[in-house]
Design a protein around this nucleic acid. Structure first.
Length: 412
DNA sequence: CGGTAACCTGGGAT
DNA sequence: AATCCCAGGTTAC
């Protein structure tokens, strides 16, 4: 269930009215995709970067897709956005994802032929700021090709998986946004986490609608503080309601401000960062590692969950097979990953984790199936090229609800 | 200090 | 149909 919700507002004061999921979004310009065959009127095509003043007057729309100078090997959108790092980006088309970075509303999409990544700014107060926010968010200075080559040199299984799952990148998210998202993630499932994150986000400034989804800037700490525990419980947060309010309160007490306090963790050592995060209510070792890895430049943080535990006992620490996942053993697992993969161990863990996801298993050669549930339905030989991977990923898109599919086509 | 039982909720399995 | 189980855990005994 990934449809945008029309929720009860956190606070009636600063909200746009709930969206109607079936109402096609208003657009100033018709969108077009970036494939070579797309028909574009020659007039519009002249100015490849056509700017149109928005209704507000302060913001601008970038009418076209522009290349990001990134190959699919450096960034695969389907392997990066819907795989548990963020619950804020929505699939708004085949091989297309949309989300917000601060006040910027941006879509990313793979070129239909060569797979290169293109971006489109739907709304921003400053296009140059949007572009740099995007590059920062994508951790653009880190070469996936380079670090994966090192992982592959020391781990043949990683090398094999990497051939089939190219472009699984670690994002560099806003720390507060990341923290609140993973507060919602504890002992929870993706669908409900997404619903909860959408609810929180809906109190942020409305930035526009793409593909039937409404997008909001992530709310500031001050705005988050307006939500009471009871409101969150009524919105379905369960016991995580007090995690959110408690953490928001704790952050507001930090000298200099909670956002600054979180940002300051980026320069510190991993263990210090983990310990600091774990002082916040609802943040334990797993959630802290997620925040550290996905937003605080702690590239060797290892979020140890049940999946990673399976990986570790199977390939890294076979002597622990059968043991239960306890906090102490979590530390051992993390250490084992760092020993094997080095200072970017978290990036290695990310790929190994993705390979465990059911959605990816179906596109991996059967040799990677675990002894657990081998569905002989999908029988692929070991020569799976990029083309087949793409078609499989498109299949997963088609497997979404008819409602989603119809909605997307309507909104084109 | 290490091991266990509650904790909210909802969808899928039994 | 009723119940159990699980979902990228954390907290309190």
């Amino acid at each position: 269930m990934k449809r945008p919700r029309s929720e009860i507002p956190l606070s009636a004061a600063s909200r746009s009215p709930p969206s109607l999921p079936h109402t096609p979004p208003q657009r100033l310009l018709k969108p077009h995709n970036c494939k070579a065959t797309s028909q574009i009127s020659s007039k519009k095509h002249k100015n490849s970067i056509l700017k149109v003043a928005a209704a507000a007057g302060k913001t601008t729309h970038l009418a076209t897709w522009a290349p990001l100078d990134l190959t699919q090997s450096e960034l695969s959108l389907p392997l990066t956005f819907p795989t548990g790092q963020t619950f804020r980006w929505k699939q708004t088309g085949p091989l297309q994802y949309t989300g917000t970075l601060g006040p910027h509303l941006i879509s990313l999409k793979h070129h239909n032929q060569n797979g290169d990544v293109y971006y489109r700014i739907h709304r921003t107060p400053s296009e140059s700021a949007a572009k740099s926010a995007l590059l920062d968010f994508l951790n653009i200075d880190i070469s996936l090709t380079d670090i994966w080559a090192e992982f592959s040199a020391s781990d043949s299984r990683f090398a094999e998986l990497a051939r089939h799952l190219k472009g699984a990148r670690v994002l560099r998210q806003d720390p507060l946004e990341c923290l609140i998202q993973f507060l919602c993630s504890s002992n929870n499932n993706i669908a409900r986490i997404t619903k909860m994150v959408d609810f929180i986000s809906s109190s942020g400034e409305h930035l526009g609608s793409v593909g039937g989804f409404e997008f909001h800037e992530f709310p500031s700490l001050e705005r988050l503080a307006m939500a009471t525990e009871q409101e969150l419980r009524e919105a379905g947060f369960g016991y995580r309601a007090k995690y959110v309010t408690g953490t928001v309160d704790a952050l507001q007490l930090k000298p200099g401000g909670g956002a600054e306090w979180l940002a300051s963790l980026r320069k510190l050592d991993l263990q210090v960062v983990i310990d600091a995060l774990c002082t916040l209510p609802g943040v334990g070792p797993k959630v802290a590692a997620c925040i550290a890895l996905f937003s605080l430049d702690q590239h060797h943080a290892i979020p140890v969950d049940t999946h990673v535990w399976q990986i570790a006992t199977r390939y890294l620490l076979p002597e622990l097979a059968g043991a239960r996942l306890t906090p102490k053993l979590c530390g051992q697992v993390a250490n084992a990953f760092v020993s094997k993969y080095g200072k970017y161990a978290g990036w290695a863990q990310t790929l190994l984790f993705i390979a465990e996801l059911p959605a990816q298993k179906t596109i991996l050669p059967s040799q990677f199936a675990t002894n657990k549930e081998i569905k002989p339905a999908v029988e692929k030989d070991s020569e799976v090229d990029d083309e087949q991977i793409h078609s499989s990923q498109d299949l997963s898109w088609q497997a979404r609800s008819l409602e989603d599919d119809l909605s997307w086509h309507l909104n084109r």
